[in-house]
Write a protein that binds this DNA or RNA. Structure first.
Length: 376
RNA sequence: GGGGAGAUUCCAGAGUGGCUAAAUGGGGCAGACUGUAAAUCUGUUGGGCGACCUUCGGAGGUUCGAAUCCUCCUCUCCCCA
């Protein structure tokens, strides 16, 4: 994997570049659609490629390990072959499930024991095991196994959790170095900065991560319910410490506004379930603001969903029709909204990249931010 | 013609003397959602800011008090001829 920077914004820390992987180039800053179980929910892979124009998608180690399972993934020849996505894939390690499935897991120094949410069976996720699974999945970018602590969280706990994450990281790196890719393409390992909302812990974690010389670095433990100001504060602090010549990935973020702010701080990669999950729940993001498509106000609005968009669905379907699909609980509603939101997110980061290169990112961001954040 | 069942708030459907503006669904309206246990979850749904006012097919009655008991009326459904 190779990361190259082609432009730096003069008024902010935003930068534009590209990542070269064996499955193709990723232009940064980039948004990565989330495809937890090997599917970006409600959207065809073909549409992810041709309409959304995504350059990399996510998969999740925990979910894919439980279902379909390693035998199937190995039999398919890895996730790329299994789901038909031939571009880069990043897999989250299951660290987020340590947080989101907190009531059915137990953390020990060895790793985390999960009780499957599917059939109740017990599974040990150790750093070594997670590396093995991510090798089987075959992701171009493998995330280290971490603990994502909740918010709020006591500082003592945050410190302990961070140290466990660092220890696990050592074991991840050791095991990663000992193992080989299974399908002939290069895989990279990204470590994750933790430290909750405590500046000294974040600093310590970021410095530790920065010293390891990995191919890219991630900021985790954000967007878990903390005030947005704290998320920004932590992101800015950590970006100032992580190496400039490696991609920075802000995990789980976020709203369109969060992403633009993150880009301004020097983040290169984002992922979030928001465009798909909120889309399935009737919320769509546009360059003119945010709409709840279930609201009565769209009932007789026969104008296109988004006349500024180039997406076929945005032009061919009306707001009234999309509202009808949602109120009728018709599956096409979530499909259109998910497609639309992903297309918008990818448009947003592409536009940001364009303005970084053109040198007017900061003024463009200031101009667009209030508009895309408003409720319609 | 004979016998039986029933009419409840937008709909379906509980409730059978006071704790009932009335369970529960559905529908409607609104909100939440940030490395996905999510096509999920939450709130609200007679009027009024309020002490209160108007509601359970219609009219009358019993009672301190009725959607709930009685009388008549109107309408609906089922079974037998």
């Amino acid at each position: 994997m190779k990361f190259s920077l082609i432009a730096n914004d003069s008024k902010s820390n935003a930068r534009a570049g590209f990542i070269e992987t064996d499955h193709g180039i990723i232009e940064t800053p980039i948004f990565m659609p989330v495809g937890t179980i090997g599917s970006v929910k409600a959207v065809h892979i073909r549409d992810i490629k041709e309409s959304v124009k995504a350059q990399i998608i996510l998969g999740n180690t925990y979910h894919l390990y439980l279902r379909p399972g390693l035998e199937t993934l190995k039999g398919a020849g890895g996730l790329h072959k299994f789901n038909g996505w031939d571009r880069p894939i990043l897999t989250d390690s299951g660290g987020f499930q340590v947080f989101s499935l907190a009531h059915r897991r137990k953390i020990t120094p060895e790793g985390v024991t999960f009780q499957s949410h599917i059939d109740g069976s017990k599974h040990l996720f150790s750093p070594e095991r997670v590396m093995d699974i991510e090798r089987v999945i075959g992701a171009d970018i493998m995330m280290a196994f971490d603990e994502c602590p909740p918010y709020p969280c006591e500082k003592d706990y945050a410190r302990k959790s961070m140290h466990i994450t660092h220890q696990w990281l050592d074991r991840c790196i050791t095991h990663f170095d000992k193992t080989e890719p299974l399908y002939g393409h290069h895989q990279s390992l990204f470590p994750i900065v933790q430290g909750s909302v405590f500046t000294d812990l974040r600093k310590e974690s970021a410095e530790h991560i920065a010293s390891l010389g990995c191919e890219g670095n991630a900021i985790g433990g954000v967007s878990v319910g903390e005030p947005i100001e704290l998320m920004y504060e932590m992101t800015e602090l950590v970006c100032g410490i992580l190496p400039k010549d490696k991609p920075r990935y802000l995990m789980g973020v976020g709203t369109p506004a969060n992403i633009l702010e993150g880009i301004g701080m020097g983040v290169d990669m984002f992922d979030c379930v928001m465009p798909t999950r909120n889309g399935r729940n009737g919320m769509i993001f546009t360059r003119n603001g945010i709409m709840n498509m279930r609201n009565e106000r769209w009932k007789n609005d026969f104008s296109p969903i988004d006349s500024d968009s180039e997406l076929f669905a945005d032009l061919e379907y009306s707001k009234a029709y999309l509202r009808h699909l949602f109120t009728a609980n018709e599956i096409l509603g979530p499909m259109i909204a998910s497609l639309h939101n992903l297309h918008f997110y990818l448009w947003l980061v592409k536009e940001a990249r364009k303005h970084i290169i053109a040198g007017d990112f900061t003024s463009w961001k200031a101009l667009i931010l209030p508009t895309i954040s408003q409720r319609l």
